[in-house]
């Protein structure tokens, strides 16, 4: 009996841990619900297997009615970090920031300095820009130097039965349903997607990647 109580406790704490949540949606007080809140990060091989695709999603939990007026914050820099030698320190960055309806990309290139403070690398030899796709129109794609760029609203690719977690927290359930229900179905995010040749980020082997948002001071 005591053991089952512990298990239920475990479930409740687990669910609470995920709340807010999801992948990184509204994960911390300083960023939750704000324009710099990263909701998700994806990194995978492209349909052209010589390329990698990096995806950063921000401003999650957009309902369709809220999506048309959602916009990228021009004071936020989204930075993809790439560590090519296994020390968890970025050797290359790809920076993205919005200005006046366009998303500008700089890199991959070495940062001026690694860490939590950045300047935008406007002299990088690899760079490009793309018009931010307006809500309700076909995806606008730009290519430059072997790279492809997109930014704009997308379906939130994250999926998770958040509602059943809530039910467990509320004490009305002790386990998941089968089938579950995707609480993120029908919601949108603002996405930044860049496809880059592997040859520009290390070529072969394994790299470490992560994404950061940084605010102009």
């Amino acid at each position: 009996m005591k053991k089952s109580k512990i298990l239920i406790g475990v479930a409740i704490v687990a669910i609470a841990g995920f709340i807010g949540i999801a992948a990184d949606h509204i994960d911390a007080p300083a960023v939750q619900g704000g324009s710099s809140d990263i909701t998700d990060f994806y990194a995978f091989q492209g349909s052209n297997t010589s390329n990698l695709v990096l995806v950063a999603n921000v401003q999650g939990l957009l309902s369709p009615s809220a999506t048309g007026s959602a916009s990228f914050d021009e004071n936020t820099l989204v930075e993809f970090n790439i560590d090519t030698n296994g020390d968890a320190v970025e050797d290359l960055v790809i920076q993205a920031t919005a200005r006046d309806g366009k998303m500008y990309f700089f890199g991959p290139t070495a940062p001026t300095q690694p860490g939590t403070s950045s300047t935008i690398l406007t002299t990088a030899s690899a760079q490009g820009s793309v018009d931010i796709t307006p809500y309700g129109t076909d995806a606008i794609i730009a290519t430059s130097g072997g790279m492809s760029f997109f930014s704009g609203p997308r379906d939130d690719p994250f999926f998770f039965d958040f509602a059943q977690y809530s039910a467990i927290i509320g004490g009305t359930a002790t386990s998941f349903n089968d089938p579950g229900a995707d609480t993120f179905a029908g919601t949108n995010v603002l996405s930044i997607v860049v496809e880059v040749p592997k040859s520009m980020v290390g070529g072969s082997g394994t790299i470490n990647t992560w994404v950061e948002s940084k605010r102009k001071q």
Binding site: D40, F41, Y104, S117, I120, T122, E212
Partner: peptide, 14 residues
């Protein structure tokens, strides 16, 4: 876009 940008959020694994 000159200036200093200071980190607010970061993620890798979900």
């Amino acid at each position: 876009i000159k200036g200093t940008y200071i980190q607010e959020d970061q993620m890798a694994r979900p």
